[in-house]
Amino acid sequence: MTALLEVADLTVTFRTDGGLVRAVDSVSLSVEAGETLALVGESGSGKSVTALSILGLIAPGRIEQGRIGFAGEDLTALDEAALRAIRGDRIAMIFQEPMSSLNPVLTIGKQVAEPIWLHRRMAWREAYAQAAELLRKVAIPDAEARLDDYPHQFSGGMRQRVMIAMALACRPQLIIADEPTTALDVTVQAQILALLKGLTQEANAALLLITHDLGVVARYADRVAVMYGGRIVESGPAAALYRAPMHPYTEGLMRSVPRLDGFASERLPAIPGQPPDLAKLPPGCAFAPRCPHVHDACVAAAPPLHALDASRSVACHRHG
């Protein structure tokens, strides 16, 4: 059986003043129908660019090579009109910033109803009725009455619920959630994630959950792919990866996860050093300058992603 989403060897570049930036470099990942894949990595590792290129929304960036297979079609080969028919209908996306991701001059009802109006060719009145239903589903109190409200009348958490409702509107097969809770209060974060996970499961949709928080991964993901400097450095089942991380970067990320049992909600020290400048990547492993286990081979050549068994892969010379 082939996966619902099958990204193979994807490379995306941006032309900048500092040179050509390879934001995503030969990335391969797959998401099965109904499965949750977490894409984890520090800021600037290329998570959002990977997600946006699935929807074909990376302008001014360019897909240099690779294939994005979705339900048997190659999305990179589709024209703009065909992609538009998929966006918001079969693949929906939730963004990081609930404060700025909703249009300030349109009512919530209109924004949630819009994909239904667009893809289901429904009259606005019927689309509004469905929007009210969706808002109830994401547990917005008094949903019907709030259709006519504007985004500024909602709190951050409520707006992210609205975004989830909007994403679910056309019953997509795949939902991409790009750090959906990073901008929210810690207490609200858990509620929103639980809601998102519950509703995607209920709709039997696949979820590509982007996060830089491994704590989130442990609880909500089936499988994990770890990104560093535009590449996947490790991937595998969430439980196995959590129990025994293999890549030094993953180990570092694990150490910076706050303990779930304690009161400590503050973040523990992150991995020392800076994320790499994507315009000036070294020839060897991108993580080498920060790696505690670095040796000569790491500086000489970048390790390829290497399959350890059917489910786990890692790109590190220690496991070559």
């Binding site: 929807l55 929304l57 538009r84 028919a85 998929i86 966006r87 918001g88 209908d89 929906a92 996306m93 963004f95 910033e97 700025s100 991701s101 909703l102 249009n103 300030p104 819009e114 994909p115 667009l118 893809h119 975004m163 909007m166």
Partner: peptide
Amino acid sequence: RQDYIRTARAKGLS
């Protein structure tokens, strides 16, 4: 350049 324009595009609007 605003985020809500990206949201609108992600909905599949022309």
